[in-house]
Design a protein around this nucleic acid. Sequence first.
DNA 1: TTCAACTCCGACCGATTTGATAGGAATTGA
DNA 2: TCAATTCCTATCAAATCGGTCGGAGTTGAA
Lengths: 174, 174
Amino acid sequence: MKLSKGVRYALRMMVDIAKESDGTNRVALSQVARHTCMPRRYLEQLAIPLRRASLLAGTTGRRGGYVLARPAQDISVGEIIESVVGRLSITNCVLDPASCTLADGCECRGLYQRVNTEIAKLFDRITLADLLREDWVQSAGTGRRRRRTPAASLRAGRGFPAERHAPSGKGSLC
Amino acid sequence: MKLSKGVRYALRMMVDIAKESDGTNRVALSQVARHTCMPRRYLEQLAIPLRRASLLAGTTGRRGGYVLARPAQDISVGEIIESVVGRLSITNCVLDPASCTLADGCECRGLYQRVNTEIAKLFDRITLADLLREDWVQSAGTGRRRRRTPAASLRAGRGFPAERHAPSGKGSLC
DNA sequence: TTCAACTCCGACCGATTTGATAGGAATTGA
DNA sequence: TCAATTCCTATCAAATCGGTCGGAGTTGAA
């Protein structure tokens, strides 16, 4: 049940383009790659389905680049995910019941279908604009929105001068 | 975002043991394998973490086998999943923030954490007993529990005619 | 008018993960 | 004593996935 790296990259790329473009400026993938330490060549691959899904608008040629095709608050995380890896399905039988050798009497399929639609709803309800909001970034765990704590505001102070997305030895981008 | 085959097998195995054992009878994995067309050798591997998580109780030796370690209504789908693939995490940074090269200022982590806990809740709220209920099987998804229908109680009597889980040519088990 | 910076496309490759098999020790009822 | 079982580790095979590459087409600027 992992989100693939492709999806994570796509999400991060969309966030970066949203921030950099400010509605109109074209953002080149080479810039995104620089900002985020993601391989440009790979981003190119990911941008294509995003464009085809009308989430990004690309301009070729010199000083070309991408812009959000719609305002960030009209782009859901669910759409982003779907465009790069297809419709969410935690199991093949969710989208294609015929793919399972058990016809109808499967005890688990109901579970899969329900959970699948619930997860899809979760992703659909969250927009790109939500991700950009400050109070969204820090909050941990309960799944419930939290107010921004004073401590969080303080720590947010050390901004991000270029090294922000730089690798720090171990680990990779989440 | 797929559930691994291991998880699906484990779920199906738990369902089968729950049905066959009726609380006390030991169910051998060779039987489960026969019923469900899953490879016995692989089931053995899956049963071990389930036992370690105190979801199954195993007895070695002749006429040995497995029984649910607790009543089906006290075993959640979430526990089953967790025992075989570890704690649910749609991203490494959910469980291990240090695994990500970006320290705090990651726009996506909040998303991952929230969605992760919501998904975990979904799985935790559903019990093995739920899966066995007839009305659970077919119905598609609002995600909301439904009362047991009289019809369901009646039909619950019938057993298990062996071919039920037999392969039908194409596809695999979902 | 040339050139450099882009998007856009398809093919391919290497590594990791995952599904599955295998051998065999220990246990226990018949 | 034997056969059926759990239990444990090691290993293999296949599928998926992350990432690279070469290159064609486009376009603004020098």
